[in-house]
Design a protein around this nucleic acid. Structure first.
Ligand SMILES: [Zn+2]
Length: 360
DNA sequence: ACTGCCGGGAA
DNA sequence: TTCCCGGCAGT
């Protein structure tokens, strides 16, 4: 028996076993999604967008100055929007209702001068970013859902037999994301919880292994027929702001997040990195890029496409990346006995498996 | 270059 | 099941 610490990891698909489909939905497609919208002092901003499915419980807990409300409810997939009463911006049909009609939320108006909303929003952002479909799946699995048991051990790392075996279950390619991408429209799994962006990021890579050497990060402007590449976020934002958005410094605060939707993060090998803009700064400010432009600064009709990784997604990638087991300090049979005494190795070492004699 | 070992395949 | 090995990642 192999040790319990075995991490089956090197499968390129092991990173995201839970989410197997990638619905070919555009940014504006909202069926089956649940937009968590909340109002801030600056306006409304979609802080999270998770795929909803029947049975998915979403828990809110907001702490205000005077009162405290917490709501939990089953979110049907027909898009109930829960939002606190913000400014009546009717930019989106999802902002019509101020309080969900299906969640018993105590009505509470935002008290003036309330500053905890930033914290709340930060918490929502964090929770939405760190929410794995596994962590938020209902404790009682949906009986109507197909028994997709492909999600165990995504983050827990407690699976004794590595991750999952591709071969289990004949003809059931559930955990295979590339196949699932082709069959995206056929059977969306109930565990759908990650943004499709993330899945694209995770699976678009031809080489899923980490090749961090000599790879630099740059940012490409996504404005139509621009394609400018800069090495810094700040420079890119400034480029977008000044060149495309035609804005000066007085709008920087408003459009601070808007530029994020018009550039994408690209990586390129160092030797391929051509002469870029002289504006070289290090990436110090983590930016969160959402899948829709901020409603506070509507720009209708302008095409935007985002294929970038937010910080949380990067974190999630890192967490769920198929990482190998940490090489132990102990010498193994190979090193102890040497190649010439291979017959003295343990069988695992002989078979190039994890050593059973010298555990870490 | 060497080592550990995952994943896969042959016998 | 046993055995072997390609190939990757880390040292
Ligand atoms: Zn050994």
């Amino acid at each position: 028996m192999l040790p319990k610490t075995r991490l089956g990891k090197r499968s390129p698909f092991g990173a995201l076993v839970g989410s197997s489909s990638c619905p070919p939905a555009g940014p504006g497609q909202e069926t089956g999604e649940t937009a968590v919208t909340m109002a801030t002092a600056a306006g409304q901003q979609a802080v999270g967008r998770v795929k909803g499915h029947p049975g998915l419980k979403v828990y809110f807990q907001c702490e205000g100055t005077g009162s405290e409300c917490s709501g939990a409810g089953d979110l049907p997939s027909d898009l109930p929007v829960w939002s606190s009463s913000g400014p009546s911006s009717s930019s989106s049909p999802s902002c019509i209702r101020s309080v969900s009609s299906c969640i018993d939320v105590p009505r509470r108006r935002r008290s003036p001068g309330e500053v905890e909303m930033d914290e709340l929003m930060a918490a929502m952002v964090l929770s939405s970013l760190s929410c794995s479909p596994l962590l938020h799946s209902p404790p009682h699995p949906d009986p109507t859902a197909p028994p997709m048991d492909c999600s165990g051990g995504l983050l827990s790392d407690s699976g004794s037999s590595g991750y999952w075996s591709v071969g289990h279950g004949s003809g059931s390619p559930a955990p295979s994301p590339p196949i699932a991408e082709a069959e995206a429209g056929l059977a969306p799994p109930p565990d759908e919880g990650l943004d499709m962006e993330l899945e694209q990021v995770l699976f678009d890579e031809p080489a899923p292994r980490k090749r961090r050497n000599s790879v630099k990060t740059a940012f490409r402007c996504l404005w139509p027929s621009c394609g400018k590449v800069l090495t810094s976020v700040v420079g890119m934002k400034r480029h977008i702001r000044t060149t495309h958005l035609c804005r000066g410094g007085e709008h920087e605060r408003c459009s601070r997040s808007e530029e994020d939707f018009y550039y994408t993060e690209i990586t390129q090998r160092a030797e391929q990195q051509q002469q870029l803009d002289s504006d070289v700064e290090t990436l110090t400010t983590p930016t969160c890029r959402w899948t829709a432009p901020p409603p506070s600064c509507p720009r209708q009709g302008l095409p935007f496409r985002v294929r970038s990784v937010s910080v949380g997604e990067q974190w999630l990638q890192h967490q769920s990346a198929p990482c190998r087991r940490i090489r132990g300090e102990a010498k193994k049979c190979r090193k102890v006995y040497g190649i010439e005494h291979r017959d003295q190795w343990c069988t695992a070492c002989r078979w190039k498996k994890a050593c059973q004699r010298f555990h870490d």
